[in-house]
């Protein structure tokens, strides 16, 4: 196994998941990395979207030989070795696209995400393809949370099994997650999503960002979206959501299978920058965002530096 140089100089025991937790304080000291100043924290976000049941590398066509879960897992491990303060997130459409889904109903996809240590996923329209009951059936295979804030599942089997937001603490940094899903009507057969109620994503995002900041005291707020990157016309998208809200640091998206050369920086409703990213589809790319945070309040007027 290849190891990064600075990892080799530390105790290898720290690499095991259990040891990593019980060596929490130790890890705090060692793993912040040599490049970081005192009092600076580094949080890494890894993300996928629209993996669409692509388990093996793609065979044939323009993406021949790309993707593959076993390789993605290795890449994730490498990043975690480099920075254990890493979150792994998915932005929906986990299901549908290869016969693995038709034959095993999403069992393999969810079990593999559990093995890779996903922290949270939001729900895409295709995750209803075996109906809401088919999604519910796979929940026991997920050790991660499904987080979505604008679908009201009160009158469905999913009631109580989905989080509208989630707070993860890494190296003392409070990271708030929420999710927004696309309008299901006209896109998914109603007999599949049943009585799931779609609420306005922008209004929901405003509420969730405020709750995560003010009630949950989060230092970072991340929106996991399956709205789509951008549209002609007034259909709500990640870029539109970014511009219409505040208090969100990062929007990672899906649905439109958008391949970007680099994340986009958008001015939000109060003129601050928000990063928007999406990484195509089928597990061809793994997105990575590194957040560097400094303890205490930064002097007013100092902008966040974006390196994309």
């Amino acid at each position: 196994m290849k190891r990064r140089k600075f990892i080799r100089n530390t105790s290898t025991g720290i690499l095991a998941g259990t040891a990593l937790w019980s060596n929490y304080a130790l890890a705090n000291g060692i793993f912040t990395g040599p490049e970081l100043e005192m009092g600076t924290k580094k949080i890494t976000i890894l993300h996928t979207n629209d993996t669409h049941s692509h388990i093996e590398p793609i065979s044939g066509g323009r993406n021949d030989g790309r993707g593959g879960v076993a390789r993605r897992a290795a890449l994730i491990n490498t990043v975690r070795e480099e920075n254990p303060n890493t979150l792994l997130l998915d932005c929906g459409d986990i299901f549908q696209g290869t016969p693995y889904f038709n034959f095993y109903g999403g069992e393999l996809e969810i079990k593999l995400m559990t093995m890779m240590g996903y922290d949270a996923a939001t729900i895409g329209n295709h995750d209803f393809d075996n109906s809401i009951d088919g999604l519910f059936k796979q929940l026991p295979n997920a050790s991660f949370d499904f987080v979505i804030s604008n679908y009201d599942f009160s009158n469905t089997i999913m009631d109580g099994h989905i989080k509208s937001r989630k707070v993860v603490i890494k190296d003392g940094v409070r990271i708030g997650l929420f999710g927004v899903g696309i309008q299901l009507q006209g896109l998914v057969d109603p007999k599949m999503y049943k009585e799931t109620i779609y609420n306005d994503p922008i209004e929901t995002a405003k509420d969730q960002a405020r709750l995560l900041r003010e009630e949950d005291n989060c230092d970072l707020v991340i929106c996991m979206s399956h709205l789509g990157y951008s549209y002609r016309g007034d259909k709500v998208s990640d870029l539109a959501l970014a511009a219409a809200t505040s208090g969100i640091d990062l929007i990672i998206g899906g649905h439109t299978h958008t391949f970007l050369d680099a994340p986009e920086i958008v001015k939000n409703a109060i003129g601050k920058d928000v990063m928007v990213n999406q990484v195509g589809c089928y597990g061809i790319n793994l997105g990575r965002i590194d957040f560097y945070l400094k303890e205490g309040k930064i002097d007013k007027g100092v902008d966040v530096v974006y390196d994309v």
Partner: peptide, 23 residues
């Protein structure tokens, strides 16, 4: 409880292809 303020953000992506190891 300490408060952390965002200072710097960097973003990129890695292609998942045959150059990577498999688990």
């Amino acid at each position: 409880q300490k408060i952390y303020e965002l200072k710097k953000v960097s973003g990129n992506q890695t292609a998942v292809d045959a150059t990577l190891e498999s688990t």
